[in-house]
């Protein structure tokens, strides 16, 4: 194993990215793809340092939907990280996950809903959950660190063991205010 060290003192409240990393590793996730978001930066760093996981930086989020399907065809579990603005880019490609019943786990950090400075984030924020549900995904949401960890654990089981397509929305309140 070449996994980065977890902080043994970490608790859900102060280090939820490490907890998510631990859960996804325990679920045997072997590929991770992402368009960066500040809220995902620690998780991206941890996966990028992990030689047992292949990471792909994407030019647009729907690429990750296709990569996830390919990974599953080849016998591997994957996870896709993005912010809410990227969800709109994914909609048609999600046809692949939905009609092929491919396991899919997306972790979406929310923008435009809590102490948001940039109004351009607001319309897609409003459209995130309805558009995901319209294309057939199950949407789960967490606004506290404790709830997030339980939610992702449950979402990983649903995705990889029950062939479901799941987006977990991580509330902006949890991520904290972006400093300008």
């Amino acid at each position: 194993m070449h996994s980065p060290q977890l902080n043994p003192e970490a608790r859900a409240g102060d280090d939820w990215p490490s907890e998510l990393y631990r859960i996804l590793k325990a679920a045997d996730v072997r590929q991770m793809s992402y368009v960066p978001d500040a809220g995902h930066s620690q998780l991206i760093r941890m996966f990028s340092a992990d030689r047992d996981v292949v990471t792909n930086v994407l030019t647009t989020e729907e690429e990750g939907i296709a990569i996830a399907a390919g990974a599953w065809l080849g016998g591997q579990r994957s996870v896709l990280l993005m912010q809410s603005s990227g969800v709109g880019n994914c909609i048609n490609m999600l046809s692949l996950s939905a009609i092929g019943r491919f396991p899919l786990l997306m972790l979406v950090t929310m923008r435009g809903e809590w102490a948001e400075f940039n109004p351009w984030q607001v319309p897609m924020s409003r459209a995130t959950q309805p558009s995901l549900e319209a294309i057939g995904l199950k949407v789960m949401r967490a606004d506290t660190a404790e709830d997030l960890i339980e939610t992702v654990e449950s979402a990983a089981s649903l995705a990889y063991e029950s062939d479901q397509q799941i987006a977990v929305l991580i509330g902006q309140r949890l991520i904290g205010k972006k400093k300008w």
Binding site: R30, Q31, V54, N56, A66, I67, A68, A69, G70, A71, W72, L73, G74, G75, Q76, S78, L96
Partner: peptide, 8 residues
């Protein structure tokens, strides 16, 4: 899809 498959 080819990329994800090739990596797996």
């Amino acid at each position: 899809i080819g990329l994800g498959l090739a990596q797996a």
